[in-house]
């Protein structure tokens, strides 16, 4: 397990939609070791306020050593991160956590909602890399509206993938939830759903997959202090009782192992 703590250069900041930002870092060590579903912890400022690093899924890596994250500005840390200028150095820790377990691409359905789309591109690109394009995974992406979703589609389309879109306001694709689209596909047993998004979305997908007897992997979010199994702050309640740790046992879990009704 190679993990690195590196000062890396921010190469590019792109504002894709209101409050949605994509950052590209030159981080060859972390990029080379990364697997889909893993994340990095980023130190936002060198000082002590905000003190803790912030976790972000790895959105995309490339063979030139670059690593991307995709995030929404929701608070102080993400606001400051969006303001960092290209050329500045930031400390990244990663790759962290256990990622998705990849099965057959033609029996894979990727479902991303909102910023949960971030890890899905990396996952999709690994699926496409390992096989012929004819065996492409199914991709369903959802967001609030066209403005938020449209800029995120290109990455998937560049891989030659067709994306089934859903928006809350119907401005792009299906008017409604990604779960409606998933339901409409009537996936056969043997399929695996890979999902990341808001908790209610993943709970609904878990419910659907249980009914259809389809296996389902989800990437969950919790607050995190260390990201590496040391603080035990990232507890995720398990169906069998007790807790797992999102940063070290996850963030990707078999959805059936988790307790969804909180």
């Amino acid at each position: 397990m190679s993990q690195f703590q590196k000062k890396v250069e921010l190469v590019r900041t792109e504002v894709l939609a209101r409050d949605v930002v994509r950052l590209t870092f030159d981080a060859p060590d972390i990029a080379a070791a990364a697997l889909p579903g893993q994340f990095v912890m980023i130190q936002i400022v060198p000082g002590q306020d905000p003190l803790l690093r912030r976790p972000f899924s790895i959105h995309q890596t490339s063979s030139d050593g670059s690593l991307q994250i995709l995030f929404k500005v929701v608070g102080r840390g993400t606001k400051l991160l969006a303001e960092v200028k290209a050329g500045e150095q930031l400390s990244l820790l990663g790759p962290l956590g256990k990622g998705f377990v990849l099965g057959d691409p033609d029996k894979a359905c990727l479902v991303g909602g909102g910023m949960g789309i971030a890890p899905m591109l990396f996952l999709a690109s690994r699926f496409c890399r390992q096989t012929q394009p004819v065996q492409a995974p199914t991709v369903i992406l959802g967001a609030r509206n066209r403005q938020e979703l449209e800029p995120l589609l290109a990455g998937f389309q560049n891989l030659g993938l067709e994306v089934l879109a859903a928006t809350d306001d119907g401005s792009l694709g299906h008017h409604g939830l990604v779960t409606d689209v998933l339901k409409g596909l009537s996936l056969a047993p043997g399929f695996t759903v890979y999902s990341c998004g808001p908790r209610p979305m993943m709970a609904a997908i878990n419910h659907l997959c249980l009914q259809e007897k389809i296996s389902c992997q989800v990437s969950v979010e919790t607050v995190m202090a260390c990201g590496m199994g040391a603080c035990l702050g990232c507890a995720v309640p398990l169906k069998a009782g007790g807790y797992a740790h999102a940063c070290s046992d996850g963030p990707v879990f078999e959805s059936g192992d988790l307790l969804w009704s909180l």
């Binding site: 803790l52 607050v223 603080c231 990232c234």
Partner: peptide, 30 residues
Amino acid sequence: KGISLTPRSGNPPPRIVETACGMLNAIGLE
């Protein structure tokens, strides 16, 4: 990490929160 006689599963989440130049934790001695 603090060790008890028998395993402890700790407190329900959220267990940590950041504060000014610090953090609060209630891990529950897991």
